[in-house]
Design a binder for these strands. Structure first.
Length: 317
DNA sequence: ACTCTGGCTCAAGACGAG
DNA sequence: TTGAGCCAGAGT
DNA sequence: CTCGTCC
């Protein structure tokens, strides 16, 4: 997921693009957040004895717990979050998704084995690998957000692409995510560690795309090709080319076509049917909602509705 | 000497009681 | 699953 | 700070 080693490359080659700060700096700021990614993290992390938290009817509540407290924390700090939900993944990602499904199926079997063997530790490990965000998880969270007066957006495809679009459209200040590909989608401001900075001793790290491009000495088109060389979700990369060689090659040849004409293909095997052009298109013109299709409004929470939903329906206290 | 790979590890959210 | 960090080993 | 609990 994301762009392989991009954070490290920027830290090494364009350190001026990174600014460290604290929660208070974001008071009054609107921030787009990948909802599906957050939910996934909550489902993986919020567990007890290897199982998600559930209410009396057996419905999972880990995602609601996580999203509820995290969102409250942000609002308390004056941040206005807008959550963006994933739509249909693009075709190019299907290979990657197939792989993930395969791994989940495998983990499912291992989980059962561990349960039979009474191996709690292994069960725990494999249970985390079987996590999948479902329609129900998403719907629960949308319901919660509505009651909290926090807006959300349904992305046509990739949530990160839509988050970046909101930045470009001037609707939010930046994207709050751990996933560096928000930059590749053209978000000028990416904020990492936005939420766990207070609980843990991790400073908030803000990445500026503009400054990264300046520091690396390349333009945005070249940056896109650089990200593809580093390794993205949409196609393979060239074995033997990592952060250093990728940046050198881009600086020297400015695009992948020219690089391909000039590198020694015996040393660096180019993948068969390399779909770098399609990947490039996905980053350049991803499917996103036009500015007038999203209306972001933050309102007062519906307290009665929240109590009714969380306490009565979902068993919170 | 530098760079990349692939092996391994670990943690993963948020809160508050003690 | 992800990512990050670390380290050994091999390729350039 | 660490650890147990949240549901």
């Amino acid at each position: 997921m994301g762009i392989h080693n991009l954070a490290k490359l920027i830290a090494d080659q364009a350190p001026a693009a990174i600014k460290e700060g604290e929660m208070a700096n974001y008071f009054g700021r609107k921030i787009a957040i990948d909802a599906s990614m957050s939910i996934y993290q909550f489902l993986i992390a919020v567990r007890q004895n290897g199982e998600n938290l559930t209410n009396d009817s057996g419905e999972t509540t880990s995602h609601l717990m996580g999203m509820f407290y995290r969102t409250i924390r942000m609002i308390e700090n004056g941040i206005k979050p807008v959550y963006v939900f994933d739509g249909k993944p693009p075709q190019l990602k299907s290979k990657e998704l197939e792989k993930r499904l395969e791994r989940r199926t495998e983990a499912e079997a291992e989980k059962t084995k561990a349960a039979d063997a009474g191996d709690g530790e292994a069960f725990d490990k494999f249970a985390r690998r079987t996590v999948k965000v479902t329609r129900e998880h998403n719907d629960d969270c949308k319901r919660l957000l509505t009651l909290m007066g926090v807006p959300y957006v349904d992305a046509p495809t990739e949530a990160e692409a839509q988050c970046a679009a909101l930045v470009k459209q001037g609707k939010v200040y930046g994207v709050g995510t751990e996933d560096m590909d928000a930059l590749t989608f053209g978000a000028d401001v990416l904020v990492r560690h936005l939420t766990f900075s207070e609980t843990r001793k991790m400073p908030i790290r803000e990445y500026s795309l503009t400054k990264a491009l300046q520091g690396l000495g390349i333009n945005f088109e070249e940056f896109t090709d650089l990200c593809i060389l580093l390794g993205c979700d949409y196609c393979d990369s060239i074995k033997g080319i990592g952060q250093k060689r990728a940046l050198d090659l881009i600086k020297q040849h400015r695009n992948i076509e020219t690089i391909l004409k000039n590198i020694d293909k015996k040393k660096y095997a180019v993948p068969d049917d390399w779909a770098y052009e399609q990947a490039r298109q996905l980053f350049k013109v991803p499917e996103i909602l036009p500015a007038d299709a999203t209306d972001l409004k933050w309102t007062e929470p519906d307290e009665d509705g929240l109590v009714s939903y969380m306490v009565k329906e979902k068993g919170f206290s």
